[in-house]
Design a protein around this nucleic acid. Structure first.
Lengths: 217, 217
DNA sequence: TGTAGTTGCCTAATAGATTTAGGCAACTTA
DNA sequence: TAAGTTGCCTAAATCTATTAGGCAACTACA
């Protein structure tokens, strides 16, 4: 019997599976079970387990970027900041498995083909509403990425639950704080130093985590 | 031949293995291979694979808390902030596998027995150098945890490498920014709202991620 | 409509990881 | 030195990942 497997359908089902049982428990075997086919059948559609997971990650990054674009449309300043921040938070809460997938390390090629760049561009767009110039814009992009990713991860991990004040209250206050900080970004206080970090040599091409916050554009 | 396995030695070797190949690739089999014994022999010392990983996580959390305590001794204000922040960043760079382990979800019992509480207390100690009162202290604890965890994770994932400005320059500017923000923490702008988040019922006891930033104390 | 070619899911098989049960030899203690 | 305990072993079951090769069900075209 033919159930009509395609790479597309496997990826979507894999994403749903991730949301249900956790991204790390997404397995080719379980997916086959869900489709009522034998495990080997999936290998005509995905190269291997890694390939499947990569596809789920790319799907999640696209979905997230689409939501971000929609949320940013017509907004600026703190409004835009909060809108994008909430996209990440809401997506992670609705789709924890997909969100985890989006944090996966990808090969540089896969990362380049991903929506990672869109995410960096969205954050930069927000910062146009604030009075920053390079390199402070990049510093701020990295700060926002860190806060969004860090907060969402910790909240999802259950670290903020069952204790006052409410997690969503904190989230709102953090957005206030970030807005205030960006409107009043402190000037560089350091005296110029001669930089000398050893440039890492050309090694076997390490995997990277492109997004949503892993690239600064 | 007896090689002298103990739970202690397995945990330490597991931590080293994690730093070498990544926490997710820590396996009972590989550990047995390294000790030159058969796999089944390890099961007298650790309950199972999960147990081994939990022990590695607890070890990492303790080590991290010890470093934090040492770094905070005799420091206050921004000095203390930077010192603790650098503990996390440096530890993650020196021991990526252990740091990943420290983010593992634990059962509520394991989390309670972990050094998670020490981490929360350290961050609160830093905030005594700033003029905050509850609930703003807790909001700030969560913000700091998010930034530390988020930045370190993204940096470790390779997201900030190979692009100007230098990642460590950004780190320094972020610490400046956090210090400025804490010295000038914005007041609550929201009008009082009637809260109504559905209290989650008593379910099978979900795992949590206690630390280093998952608990606000 | 019959037939050729392609595609999709199958069986079969190998290899590694996890985990349990039960055995024997090497340590410890008296 | 005998008795008891402990530590590592063999053996076996189960699960996941992956490859090779087969046959039946689709598609397309005469």
């Amino acid at each position: 019997m033919r159930v009509g497997l395609t790479t597309e359908r496997l990826t979507r089902a894999g994403a749903e599976l991730a949301d249900e049982v956790g991204f790390d428990r997404v397995t080719v075997s379980e997916l086959a079970r869900r489709f009522g086919v034998k495990v080997a059948s999936l290998y005509s559609h995905v190269k291997n387990s890694q390939d499947l997971k990569t596809r789920i990650a790319l799907l999640a990054l696209e979905e997230l970027a689409d939501r971000g674009d929609a949320a940013l449309a017509g907004r600026a300043g703190k409004d835009a900041l909060a809108a994008l921040a909430n996209v990440y938070r809401d997506y992670a809460r609705e789709h924890p498995g997909r969100y985890a997938a989006a944090q996966m390390r990808l090969t540089p090629e896969a990362a380049a083909a991903s929506a990672g760049g869109r995410h960096a561009r969205m954050t930069r767009a927000i910062l146009r509403g604030y009075d920053l110039t390079e390199p402070d814009v990049t510093h701020a992009v990295r700060l926002l990425g860190s806060v969004f990713h860090g907060y969402v991860t910790l909240e999802l991990g259950g670290g903020f639950s069952h204790s006052a004040p409410d997690s969503r209250e904190t989230w709102s206050r953090i957005l206030d704080a970030l807005d205030a900080l960006l409107r009043n970004w402190p000037a560089d206080s350091a005296e110029p130093a001669e930089s000398a970090e050893p440039a890492d040599s050309a090694e076997p091409a390490k995997p990277v985590t492109p997004g949503p916050h892993g690239t600064t554009g």
